[in-house]
């Protein structure tokens, strides 16, 4: 029904593979047979009008749908060839390796340090305090926040500005050194300047991680992503290199959407 190319960036290894993924909430189908292959060390953007299923699909990738009563996921989803919906895969382990950043910055009501140290602590990744200090510093540096907060690590995370909070949350996610980072409209609650910083950050992180970002803004998708997938009414309509999608969409719905006829 749709014409998707399985691997738009052949030079990069494939990280995530979805085959006929369906999701239904209490019997209502929200996602229809999505198949996609997402390469490592690049940014893949999911775009589409609200309610199109892009966030739902994102939440499949770290099994966050498990936390919703009545959610059912079907089909096959693999990361590095390993089926993540398999019974033998523990969601705790999966989520440790798949970080997630949410729409609204959600730092815990703890200090900046404790926010970043949260993951390493619960997973027991650091045995000594210096080790933990190092992890925290690295994560904050990678998130580009170290210079701004190094002198007030004991301040509550909620005392930071919105953009800083979002970078703190990213630092929190990368502190456990995940393989995939999911971002669910990470800039929708931020002003343009903070958005620019985050986009810069995403671009830097691309070196080391497989990043999947859901966004409302087509400009943002065009700016940060290498691949773009367009979702509509629970279907994956079109998927390909970002350039192709924006300059030469094959599906009329994609065309209508990016030209602003609906959305």
């Amino acid at each position: 029904m749709t014409d998707t190319s399985p691997n738009p960036a052949a030079e990069l290894p494939i990280k995530v593979v979805a085959r006929d993924v369906t999701v239904s909430y209490s019997g209502k189908q929200a996602l229809h047979d999505v198949s996609i292959e997402i390469p490592d060390r690049s940014v893949t953007a999911f775009i589409g009008p609200s309610g199109c299923g892009k966030s739902t699909f994102l939440r499949c990738l770290n099994r966050m749908n498990d936390t919703i009563d009545g959610a059912k996921v079907g089909g096959s989803l693999t990361i590095d060839g390993q089926e993540i919906n398999d019974k033998s895969i523990d969601p705790v382990v999966l989520r440790a390796s798949v970080g997630m950043v949410f729409q609204k910055p959600n730092p815990f009501p703890k200090s900046i340090y404790d926010n970043v140290a949260y993951g390493p602590r619960i997973h027991g990744l650091a045995l000594t305090r210096p080790e933990l200090d190092e992890i925290v510093e690295n994560a904050l540096r990678k998130a580009g926040l170290w210079e701004e907060v190094s002198d007030r690590l004991n301040h509550p995370g909620t005392s930071l500005s919105g953009g800083q909070q979002q970078r703190l949350v990213i630092a929190r996610a990368i502190a456990v050194n995940p393989e995939v980072i999911l971002m669910d409209e990470p800039c929708s609650a931020l002003d343009p300047i903070a958005t620019a910083r985050i986009e810069e950050l995403i671009d830097e992180l691309r070196e080391n991680y497989c990043i999947i970002i859901v966004t409302h803004s087509m400009q943002q998708a065009a700016r940060v992503s290498q691949q773009t997938a367009f979702f509509h009414m629970g279907n994956l309509v079109e998927y390909g290199p970002t350039e192709d999608i924006f300059t030469n969409p094959r599906d009329t719905r994609t065309q209508d959407y990016i030209t602003g006829r609906f959305g």
């Binding site: 590095d80 060839g81 705790v92 440790a96 997973h123 050194n177 393989e179």
Partner: peptide
């Protein structure tokens, strides 16, 4: 696609004390 599932360091580390956590 890689042929053998390559278990990443983070997964190994987390799996180590999973039993105690559960």
């Amino acid at each position: 696609m890689t042929d053998t599932p390559d278990i990443s360091p983070i997964r190994t580390a987390v799996s180590k004390n999973l039993g105690a956590r559960y």
